[in-house]
Design a protein around this nucleic acid. Structure first.
Lengths: 289, 289
DNA sequence: CAAAACCTGTATCAAAAATTCCAGAATAAG
DNA sequence: CTTATTCTGGAATTTTTGATACAGGTTTTG
């Protein structure tokens, strides 16, 4: 590596900022140190060298080299700087409101995140608490069978939900959206079944057909969709809409994921007595393999 | 002095509060220590014993007795407590902004959303712009082959990414984490390949093995993980950590989804000339089926 | 493909820090 | 005023922590 690349930028107000700027010039272990520090900034640096090294999965000398590279005379110097920075920041509450003024670097990521955060907020505000609760209750009924399904993109979310619920309770499965895969399964679907379907715009014919068929046979349908509502809403007994627009050519599923994770958390909590031993059993099995 | 006066109150949330309560029971030198600590709380306590003693104009042993009296096992214990208190206070700007003013209706969903939003923000702030950009560049190189993979839960995210990238560009696929599924595929993996791996705590052996094997054969590994970094980070050339803690028995993947969608958006934009016709073609095919 | 440069961890050492001991000073009680 | 108790700081001790030298291993370069 050339001397030029070794140079450390000095025109940054915060140490964190400087580290982010120089990230590409770091060696692998230095990068790990940097990541750990930034992920818990600045507290990760206030422990001892050994602790820091352990967290980053590198050796103590590598940590020392890292702080030396940052321009400090030694680890105590480095810690002193962190403390002073922290103190200065803490004494000005305003500084916290908009901490890192967004540089030219990655406005893409930052503005995307802002849009997604706005979506989350809008999603929460537009969900009727009662509706959410009744879905939680429904998914917590152990005698019912849960079937998750979704479209081209949202299928991944359905899988995500299924992989969690499968551990929390029994009678949980995933149904692939394509008719060829579920045609024969449908004969077993009835009143005892709950279909949790994910479908956002460019609503998918096969998923719609699946839900209509299931509903006709007496199954309960829970729909997670966008604010314009998939046609599945007609046959669904519960609808949870999420905002999906983002500065992208694609819709964002973050709102749907939020609802999904909130449902998982709520149901896990409600079924804790039976979920806990199941989770522990999974944990034990994991160790054996 | 009686035993009664020596008792330390325990029903105080903050250490500072407790010290104020028990101030009258302190000896003269302890009072000096307490005053110095409170006047620069908690930073006066984060220095060394000697420094603290000098500032308070007392001796080191007096400082030690002071912290022992407060109920700590030693000075390091005391400092650790201060750091943790500070961290908790600093990391919950949301908790302070929206106190506990939430109705009984849907506190679960709302507070969950707050936590997720905080995660997203923390995630963005800790990603080095340069790192993000270089991943975008990497994923935009059409001659490379992209392989997405993930663990038990994160596999769904990998699928989500794959289903989008598959449309934007060619040479994209999903690799199931289980060794049985990828063993024979590995012979074709080499310098031209990029592995995009999702792995968060309870890091999964098979995914790690996959990445190590691929890296050994010259493939480039991009890792999306939590702030504690999967062991895959060792062989990864790019690491994007996302915050995952949530008020749940499970981790939240919202940060990972955010990064994923931001990557999809950025790559789509960069490859727009070739992506647009591909997306239109998919649209036409959809209508025919 | 060989050589050089570089990165990283182990083992070791030196320094600094925390802690303990004890004697003297201050204070309170008798 | 004397005595007992408590408080305090200097100095010694022990533990912890940061720093360094060196060698194995990796990557880069020619």
């Amino acid at each position: 590596m050339s001397d030029r690349a070794r140079t450390i930028s000095t025109d940054a107000s915060s140490l964190a900022e400087r580290i982010r700027n120089d990230m590409q010039s770091f060696t692998p272990s230095e990068k790990r140190a940097a990541h750990v520090l930034l992920s818990h900034y600045p507290f990760a640096g206030l422990d001892t060298v050994a602790e820091f090294a352990a967290r980053a999965g590198i050796s103590a000398p590598s940590v020392l080299r890292f702080v030396t590279r940052l321009g400090f005379g030694g680890f105590p110097d480095f810690q002193k700087h962190l403390r002073e920075e922290l103190e200065a920041q803490l004494l000005s509450p305003l500084a916290k409101a908009h901490p890192p003024a967004r540089g030219h670097g990655a406005p893409a990521l930052a503005s995307f995140a802002d849009a997604v955060a706005a979506n989350l907020r809008a999603t929460v505000e537009n969900i009727a608490p009662a509706e959410f609760d009744s879905v939680v209750t429904l998914l917590s009924e152990q005698r019912r069978h849960l079937h998750f399904t979704g479209g081209r993109f949202t299928g991944a979310l359905a899988r995500y939900a299924e992989s969690h619920f499968r551990i929390v309770r029994s009678h949980v499965d995933f149904i692939d959206g394509q008719p060829a895969h579920w045609r024969d399964r449908m004969i077993e679907i009835g009143r005892k079944d709950v279909i949790v379907a994910y479908d956002i715009r460019r609503y998918q014919e096969d998923v719609i057909a699946l839900c209509e068929t299931a509903a006709k046979q007496g199954a309960t349908v829970v729909l997670l969709t966008d604010p314009w509502l998939s046609p599945i809403a007609r046959v669904a007994s519960h609808v949870l809409p999420a905002h999906v627009t983002a500065p992208s050519n694609w819709d964002s599923s973050a709102g749907l994921l939020l609802l999904t994770e909130a449902l998982i958390a709520a149901v896990t909590k409600r079924l804790w007595n039976s979920a806990k031993p199941r989770m522990e059993a999974v944990e034990r099995l994991r160790g054996k393999l």
